[in-house]
Amino acid sequence: MNLKLKIWRQKDATDTGKIVDYNISDVSSDMSFLEMLDVLNTQLIEKGDDPVSFDHDCREGICGSCSLQINGQPHGPDGGTTTCQLHMRKFKDQQTIVIEPFRAKAFPIIKDLIIDRSAFDRIQQAGGYVSVNTSGNTQDANTTPINKVDADHAFDAAACIGCAACVAACKNSSAMLFVSAKVSQYALLPQGQIERQQRVQDMVAQMDEEGFGACTNTGACEAECPKGISLTNIARMNREYIGANLKS
C-alpha cells in the first residue's frame, strides 16, 4: 500500500517543531507500524536526510517504550495494543497517517517523536516500592497467604507498562491511571501494607509536582490503555488518598 505520512519533526527540546510530509510506497500490510517507520528511515538515510527519531525496545508490547500518537489516538486505532503491536493492515491504501509524540508539559520532547518520561520514574521512586529484607534470608512469597481476588486485582494493576498512553489520551494530561495502578498493586498485597499511607501521599504529591493535570473521569485513559488498566484503580487510589490524609 502507498501512504502519506505527516510526522512531527523537532530537532531538540528548544525547537518549536513542525509537521513534515512524507510519501511511502509498497508498504506491506503484514508490517508492524514500527517496521514501516524503519523502512521510511532507511529511505531517508539513503537520501542523506535525518531519520525520524522514535522510541522502541522490546517490540512485543511489554516494555512500554513505543509511544506514538497516531491519527489522534495513543498507539493508534487498534484497541488494547501498543504501537509496536499495531500492524499496517489496520490502515488503507492511500491513507494519510498523522504521527505525533505523546504531548504533556511533564513529558518534554527530546527529539522528533521521543519524549522524556522520567517524570514517571520520579513518581515511582517517590513511593512505588515495598520494604523487603534482601539480606539473604528473604521469606518465600508463597508463605504469605493472599486472597485470590486481591491477588488478581493486584496482578491486573501490575500489568501497567508505564507507556504513558493514559496521559496522552487524557484531555487534562492526567497521570492518575498510571499512578493508581502502581498504588493499587501494592495496596492490595500484604507486602505493601507497611508504606501504604505514605506511599499514596508521596506518589500523588510527586505527580502534582511534575505538572500533570487532574482527573475529570472522562475514561479516555482506560479506553486507550494497551494493558486494560481499569478506572477502578483510580477510585481505589482516591480512597487510599482520602483515608491516608484523614489518618495523618
Binding site: 492526567s174 487532574a214 475529570t216
Partner: peptide, 13 residues
C-alpha cells in the same frame, strides 16, 4: 488542566 498540555495535538480523535 489546560496548562498541563501547553502544545496541543495537531490531530485529535
Amino acid at each position: 488542566n489546560k496548562s498541563a498540555r501547553p502544545v496541543p495535538y495537531v490531530m485529535k480523535n
